[in-house]
Amino acid sequence: MVKKKIMKTREVLKVAALAIVTVILSLTSAFAAEEVNLYSERQPFLMDPLLKAFTEETGIKVNMVYIQKGMLERLKAEGANSPADLILTSDIGNLNNHLEADLLQASQSSILENNIPSHYRHPEGKWYGLTTRARIIFAHKERVKPGEISSYEDLAKAHMKGRVCTRSGKHMYNVSLLASIIAAKGEDAAEAWAKGLKANLARKPQGNDRAQVKAVFQGECDVSIGNTYYMGKMQTNDKSPEQKEWASAVNVIFPNQSDRGTHTNISGAAVTKSAKNKSNAVKLIEFLTSNNAQKIYAEDNFEYPIKKGVALHPLVESWGTFKADTTFLSNVAKQRILATRIMDRVRFDN
């Protein structure tokens, strides 16, 4: 009986080995003539429609790996032999990290220079912004009186005590926001702000941006901080209609309209130093900043197109126009380490 079992195991092993070889072969044989290889921090469900449109338009096949953490280390470890031609990030911070690690190369393209405002791209073309979003304040329609809150600074003031909800202070969105305050007002003021904000929290930082709006809706707090596109996603969520209710309970406030403007961040793309299909990579970035692609970003993900003249999603449009903080994003990104340390110092999450 035992022997039989061993025989069975062996059969299973054989079949398994065969199947695995087949899988590997089918993967490697999929080489197309024209291709571009992509490491993406943005989710496949977001990118797939865009990449499909790109392949249809140009015939260039796009291979992608979705990596959130460790993209930089992978590029570094693979070195000059890395197959990646292009990276997509969801934040300026990561673009900057890659730049500082000397993993990017410059590329020139008049199309890109036309499509992207200069403060949303690297001066030498080492990275390009693709979309922008703003970090805004959601305020309960009734419990927050008009004028009670109009800036990030107001969130840290005494009258907001016990009324603010936000996600972890270590999340890159909040780190970036704090970094922008450091860039605008200096380290001490930023630390004082973080401390004040922490003191005003209604609950320990937790959950995501949507969950904060939900908490406002449920009465746990009165205001929350979040990215613009989450509002759109909630307002149109047919799968979970309760999210529409949450969204309808709050007003969108673009902070700091009377001074430096609302903190914005970008998603971006960059050509890697090791790129073997550089021209295809540039073509893909060009495509992602084209009217068509920018429209998909705007429609599907409620982001602000980086290209002027592309229509916003009507919902996004309904929130009104706003003045963005124009501090060059690279300068904000450089303050992220300090921002993280400040979050530690004020023990924001505890």
Partner: peptide, 8 residues
């Protein structure tokens, strides 16, 4: 996530 091949 970190180690996988393209499109996998």
């Amino acid at each position: 996530v970190i180690l996988r091949p393209f499109n996998f």
